[in-house]
């Protein structure tokens, strides 16, 4: 018994959905790289950093393009995850009494938790820095002085802690995700797989450490 003849679309199969998940993940990953590099300029002092923020504002087209791409990627990513996990829950209604993992890593097993946490984080993070731009602590959020928002924000310990935790989650998510997405997209060759894995993980860890460095530096007064 077959349903009406129509060509198989990307979203008609788990493999297609998984590929969409990987592509969207890759885009968000890409964004976090650029984002982190941009934010590194905070170490060059208020002028440079605010100037960077201002220049971004002078090119709304680019910014909006980025927002749309990243925003829709997050939506696709989340949507795919939900539909895939809905399936995989149904795929094993009765679990095992004893189950021992032979190969699954902690990070890969935790994907389904680190993911949603990241979603919460993103919402929180945008609310904090972008719209509406909520002051997390006793300072005025300045629409123009991103640098002081940055410093003031992270001077509040619990804010810093949230960021550090969230980015640790990001690290875990990408520890599996970065290689996994290449595997999903079929970008694999027995000869280079090991190298591939190390590179992907290295980039993922760089992003994470870079990100974590920001709140830490503020807390320790390296950035004032």
């Amino acid at each position: 018994m077959q349903t009406a003849q129509k060509t198989l679309g990307v979203f008609d199969t788990t493999v297609g959905k998984k590929i969409a998940l990987a592509v969207s993940g890759a885009i968000i990953f890409g964004f976090t790289i650029v984002h982190m590099l941009g934010n590194l300029q905070v170490y060059l002092g208020p002028e440079v950093f605010n100037h960077y923020a201002d220049t971004l504002k002078t090119m709304p087209a680019l910014v909006w393009a980025e927002r749309i791409v990243v925003g829709s990627s997050v939506i696709v990513h989340v949507a795919m995850m939900i539909s895939l996990y809905d399936r995989s829950l149904k795929a094993r209604p009765v679990g095992y009494q004893v189950k021992r993992s032979v190969a699954t890593t902690y990070a890969s097993a935790a994907m389904k938790y680190t993911g949603p946490l990241l979603l919460l984080y993103i919402v929180y993070h945008i609310a904090h820095f972008t719209f509406p731009g909520i002051s997390m602590g006793d300072y005025e959020h300045s629409p123009t002085d991103v640098y002081s928002n940055f410093v003031n924000g992270f001077s509040v310990p619990w804010v810093a802690v949230i960021y550090i935790f969230a980015n640790a989650m990001l690290g875990m998510h990408l520890y599996h995700g970065a290689t996994s997405m290449l595997q999903t997209l079929g970008l694999n060759h027995p000869q280079y797989n090991a190298l591939r894995g190390r590179l992907a993980t290295a980039v993922a860890m760089a992003v994470t450490l870079g990100n974590i460095s920001f709140p830490v530096s503020v807390l320790f007064g390296i950035i004032q």
């Binding site: 788990t14 493999v15 959905k17 998984k18 895939l84 399936r87 995989s88 149904k90 795929a91 094993r92 993992s101 032979v102 190969a103 699954t104 890593t105 890969s108 097993a109 994907m111 599996h176 290689t179 996994s180 595997q183 999903t184």
Partner: peptide, 13 residues
């Protein structure tokens, strides 16, 4: 009704 692959590698193991 099989699930998707998350590249856990249990199967290979």
């Amino acid at each position: 009704g099989f699930g998707h692959c998350s590249n856990h590698g249990e199967c290979e193991a």
